[in-house]
Design a protein around this nucleic acid. Sequence first.
DNA 1: TATGAATGAGCTTTCATTCAT
DNA 2: TATGAATGAAAGCTCATTCAT
Lengths: 230, 230, 230, 230
Amino acid sequence: MASCLTARGRQTRAKLLEAARTVFETCDFRDCRVRDITKAAGVSYGSFYTYFPSKESVLREVGMAVARELMVGPDAESSVEPELVGMELEEDSPESRARRVYNRVLRANRTYLQSFMRNARLLAAIDQMALYNDELFQIRQDMRRDIGERNRATIAHWQKEGLVDPELDPVYAAAALGSMVYRFAYTRFVFGGDFELEAAARNLSRLWVQALGMTVETELPPTRRAPSAL
Amino acid sequence: MASCLTARGRQTRAKLLEAARTVFETCDFRDCRVRDITKAAGVSYGSFYTYFPSKESVLREVGMAVARELMVGPDAESSVEPELVGMELEEDSPESRARRVYNRVLRANRTYLQSFMRNARLLAAIDQMALYNDELFQIRQDMRRDIGERNRATIAHWQKEGLVDPELDPVYAAAALGSMVYRFAYTRFVFGGDFELEAAARNLSRLWVQALGMTVETELPPTRRAPSAL
Amino acid sequence: MASCLTARGRQTRAKLLEAARTVFETCDFRDCRVRDITKAAGVSYGSFYTYFPSKESVLREVGMAVARELMVGPDAESSVEPELVGMELEEDSPESRARRVYNRVLRANRTYLQSFMRNARLLAAIDQMALYNDELFQIRQDMRRDIGERNRATIAHWQKEGLVDPELDPVYAAAALGSMVYRFAYTRFVFGGDFELEAAARNLSRLWVQALGMTVETELPPTRRAPSAL
Amino acid sequence: MASCLTARGRQTRAKLLEAARTVFETCDFRDCRVRDITKAAGVSYGSFYTYFPSKESVLREVGMAVARELMVGPDAESSVEPELVGMELEEDSPESRARRVYNRVLRANRTYLQSFMRNARLLAAIDQMALYNDELFQIRQDMRRDIGERNRATIAHWQKEGLVDPELDPVYAAAALGSMVYRFAYTRFVFGGDFELEAAARNLSRLWVQALGMTVETELPPTRRAPSAL
DNA sequence: TATGAATGAGCTTTCATTCAT
DNA sequence: TATGAATGAAAGCTCATTCAT
């Protein structure tokens, strides 16, 4: 596609795509006019249709790009929900293993919150668009399923190793803990509210590992946050 | 407003409001036509504007009604996030207190999931609309804040009593655990997926109390769920 | 359809239909704007779509109406090509029978030319639209087929009676003679040109019956026509 | 115009003209995009406007070319309506003269049908365009007038020679008989329908000469045609 | 009050034409 | 000359809102 365009064409297309991304962040897809996108891109109205067959199509393309970024990331470290993947814990004593799990979870959550911060509005927009766009719905569904399955596998693995409460259903646990972080981030970033990333990451991680039945000895640093913030 | 209407007028207005609620559940606000509402209400097109100045206004009114119901409930037991309110636990031994907390949380979560089940589509709709409707945004914000504050207070109280991990920030903990249940329910109800209410409630509650640092001795019944469901 | 409208609605719809008819006569369907129709009807732009789901649909309706009129006519005597239907000729001597055939053909052609005169522009328009509208194409095709078959049957019948040249293929003959009158009328009415209806009818009829192998003893009145007219 | 172009330019222009002709045959002028023409010509979009000032202009040029071809023909044998031109019949006995007329008419019609077959779509297209393009209208008008006049003269000449029914108006007769063949061919080629060229030519020619009051002794070969075809 | 027709601003999309390279 | 991107004026259609009955 992009390959059969001239350099100038590729540039214009990129400008439009970038503009669409920005515009979709600021207003609902339904409220975004093609005119808004072309204005933001600084090109003429008609040029939009030189590169995209419809308004829907650019939404789709932006959506897929965001999905890709959140799944594998430009830096391959963010995802739609925090992932525990790659947490090989080959070590000895139970304490140190729990500690390692905590550290891994903390790293995952910290990364996730940072990534979410960058994409919050757009992710929210896509989540919303997914409600009335089948293709985005599918993309979103697949993202969720992928992460869910990976986290479920990790939790089940830890259960076998005796690290995690064996009474918990790993499917529900994976879904619930993923939901916790996603929605926490969503409300903070989309609806605003005072917020300290590091403290949030530590609290979420502590809740996470404790929920699974592990104990954490680390002390959390005191939160410096406006007392009214919820 | 409603008070200066005749009996017949009040009835028509009620029919329209009820119809709007139904319609908003089935399709996005933007896709709902005034015609859909009047058709569902069985009144003429023009009558809509006898009772509501605009389409936005009926959305606002439905939103407020839903908010009221979820906050205080028609039966005062559901809310936008599960509430721990009224959990006075005056009893003796730590074990039994933890047990009581668990039971209270379980009851709250079970009730919440049931209530969510009834209102899922509408709540999702309102959540979405809140993204581009200031008034709904405010309503939604207030709901969240109220519940958050109440749960925060309960958690802080339990911390003072030594029931809950004192390292946790009660604001973040309240927000995170509320988010966990809300989003878990949301994904299940809106996006579908195999689901057993009682098992879900028990798993969520176990995660909840363990996350706060309490231990639960109860055994969870084995989940009967399609193994593929996430 | 029309029955579920109020009197006012029926009136507006009729105004639009009439206006569409007029507009389609003056310009190509593709050049006609919905605005042209509503302007001609003296109603607002939006009203068009209260009564017709699309521009195509009103074309279809006009086309079918014209087809009906030409087939059975408001006065049931015109058709898309002159018809010989109903020419029962039960009489005696060959001469008088040929004479009767001639008179019948003359009456049919005269009527046809008159009818064509009233509908020429519209019929031309429909003929043209049929080239890119499947539905109209079908309608037009059916009309032609119907008339063709009826004329073929009459000619075949006359062949059996010994009135008509038995060497002629009745299918081709019917098509050719129908074509002759249709196209003659079309060029006269659509492209203009001096023209005397009665003289034209007589000449066409004489050509018609002579073509089929019959002889006509009648004298044609001298034509009073501009000598340049073709 | 074409003269002040380089060899390469003339070639490109010719390619475009040829492509336009092809494209106009396959679809209505309004549905033809400049893009279709350049694609068919295998040149770039922009090149079109190097050689033609507008889409209309290429249509005009194609139309004139077709007119020229049909009038004088690349092989000078086809025309918009069959021509009797050049039918000098200097011979003796009335029978043989009628026979000669028939043969000449047959040859003319046969040639005409063959030629029409090659140009049918384009001729139909031009006929249609003439309805809303003044220049084409004029071209078409002139073609018709020319042929009409020539046929009129021939018929009038034959009337003086006593070959043709003196009662007929030669103007109407020329127009009617030309119309017969034109429209017969048009319906066959444009609207389809089973069709045998030789049989059609013979039937049309028999109808033609008989219409003019001549008798033909020749037997027509039996038609081999699907009985349903009209 | 109840009705349903009337209104027109506003949207997406198309494509002939222009223009920079 | 050749190229293909850039442009923007229309067009069809929708639907919230108004209005006459």
